[in-house]
Design a binder for these strands. Structure first.
Lengths: 198, 198
DNA sequence: TTAATATCCGGAACGTTGCTCCGTTTTGTC
DNA sequence: GACAAAACGGAGCAACGTTCCGGATATTAA
């Protein structure tokens, strides 16, 4: 993303200055509101905090998923990029898989309602779901393949299933502090493991 | 004002006849609507189908969870009662656990949005969650204990975790036909299993 | 049967939220 | 400064949850 200065119409037709300013204000406000009210917070609230009208929010981010995606874009990328480097650095492919899953869970669990939104049956978050899949599924596939090649896990598990399962298990952690998704996810990974004997 | 039963009708003395009639109509309508629109269907829709006003629905079932609970009461009971009998009839405690989990998943998966509602972070369904826990958690605890006593599973897994995990994994199956929670739940159970060697 | 009253009913009404529409304002350019 | 395009803001509409209250109904007493 090249940040071109308003002076001089550079490569691409840049947006108007006020539009850019507002877009950033909305993004900042959304990030703040998401922390306190979750990704389901009313658009009105975000608009108010950003000091803009609701239409401005919708203009820059047509769907809620677009807004959420924009807010967390960076962290999703980080998670995606962590896959290959973990694979290169870990003691075993399975260990890399485990570590990556841990990263992914960390990400989901620290964003209020994000896991919930990801699997929401409403299609309000469809594009968010799609983005997650597009970006992270190949990473998980690579990790799974590596582990399978090393004979560490049973074959047959689909990357989508793994992502889905992890996402699902992270749902609702916000409202129930006694629930720790990690324990179950560990069990899931354990179930994935190929018995050393066989 | 006396709650004592005077003379006359024996069984149902408390409510007026029309109230009973309406309550049943609401229950029937809700059951029908849930099938097509899920447990999140608008109260208005249920009221309309029952041919009553909205206040009547709220009068008989103050919260949505009460309505859902009433509709599925029977099936929840069946699921609860299946636990001990499966334990008595199965080849092993672990097999009983597996079969019971299968029953539970069947139940969740065939009710649109029920799994979603169960773990919903909103407290609109809090009492439903409570009812499930009250009724089914002891059953799963019994099954887990039996399996643990037989040395078939690792110790340390909490019944609540199992219920929660299964419920979570069933979320969103409605909107994604390519997602089969059973495969992941099988993995979970597999991960629970104690290695035969150790 | 009729009258009295506790009970119950229905839908209007209010608050919240998602999303759109359109008159107005701002910005960039000449 | 003038002009057109771009962007803005909030009123407005629809859907939903939930409550309120005047009116209808069932039950009991006389």
């Amino acid at each position: 993303m090249t940040a071109e200065s308003p002076s001089g119409k550079a490569s691409t037709r840049s947006k108007r200055a006020d539009a850019q300013r507002n877009q950033r204000a909305v993004l900042t406000a959304a990030a703040e509101v998401f922390v306190t009210s979750g990704v389901d917070a009313p658009i009105r609230q975000i608009a108010a905090r950003a000091g803009v009208g609701m239409a401005t929010v919708y203009r820059h981010f047509p769907t809620r998923a677009d807004l959420v995606t924009a807010v967390y874009h960076h962290q999703i990328e980080e998670c995606a990029e962590a896959g290959p480097s973990l694979l290169a650095g870990a003691d075993s492919p399975f260990e890399a898989l485990r570590q990556w899953v841990d990263l992914f869970v960390d990400f989901l669990v620290t964003k209020h309602g994000l896991a919930d939104a990801l699997q929401s049956d409403s299609d309000r978050f469809a594009t968010l779901h799609t983005y997650f899949i597009d970006r992270l599924l190949p990473v998980s596939a690579q990790l799974l393949d590596a582990a399978a090649d090393a004979g560490a896990i049973k074959p047959g598990i689909q990357p989508y299933e793994l992502m889905r399962g992890i996402g699902n298990l992270c749902i609702g952690r916000d409202s129930d502090p006694s629930y720790d998704p990690r324990r179950l996810i560990d069990l899931l990974l354990e179930g994935l493991r190929r018995p050393q004997s066989a």
